[in-house]
Amino acid sequence: MNTRQRARLAFWLLAPALTFVVVLGAFPVLSQFALSFTKFNLKFADERGFAGLSNFARLVSDGVFWQDLGQTAYFTVVSVGLELVLGLAAALLLNKVFRGRTAMNSSLIVPWALPTVVAATMWSLLLNDRIGLVNSVLERLGLMGEPIVWLGPRLAMTSVILADVWKTTPFVAIILLAGLKSIPNQYYEAAALDGAGRWAVFRSITLPLLKPFIAVAVLFRTMDAFRIFDLIWVLTGGASRTETLSVYIYRVLFRYGDLGYGSTMTVALFVIVFVLSLGLIRFMRISGEAQ
């Protein structure tokens, strides 16, 4: 086989995969863009037409969109921040050799392995103010007077964040654990010879070498957190200022059948997540070069 034949074969072998990428990736994104310029409601299909930029004008003046964007950002920053700190702590702990680590490793992964909807339903039962386990434990410990309404107006967002932290900290921990494993032991031995303290070792060896892994974890988690839907849908339905953009988009697209405006918001969410990811990747590269 000469080079040309090989190239042609390679193209044909890649063709199915490319087709999938185009059909499942590019096509939906492009058709969303196209839809965002139309007036199109599934239930009023006869009124379909070109809408120009009116959907985007509506987006700018849509208070719910901006409020939900703020809530989504808050959820993302707090939950990813907590997951990073706790995940790092867990990874450091697991990286120490001690007995029963295999059991620890596998039990750690359980929350992450559960489907989110199942985990969310479980949390909504645990957090129920009257029959929930959390309140009954608090009551038995004598720490609670009136039952705490975890999913009520004051604590709803906090509870949602805690459920998310419980669920996805393992993901961060495992990525960081892989990172810790990749750091050669010689560095630590050398540091020990030089008489470096624990904090110094952590700051000058562990953290810098772990940075690429932290960046990957943060990137994945941020993208996921920004699109959070199922957890909130089950726990609060978006009540008490916990509605995120995905929940609002779902309402508009599926409950109202408004494909035009729903697509406009999807495009906005796409752009936000895209820019955010690019920013994180760039930050990652810069901090990588700095070493």
Partner: peptide
């Protein structure tokens, strides 16, 4: 207090 605060959930 006729209805508990949890009613909102």
């Amino acid at each position: 207090g006729i209805s508990p605060g949890g009613v909102l959930t």
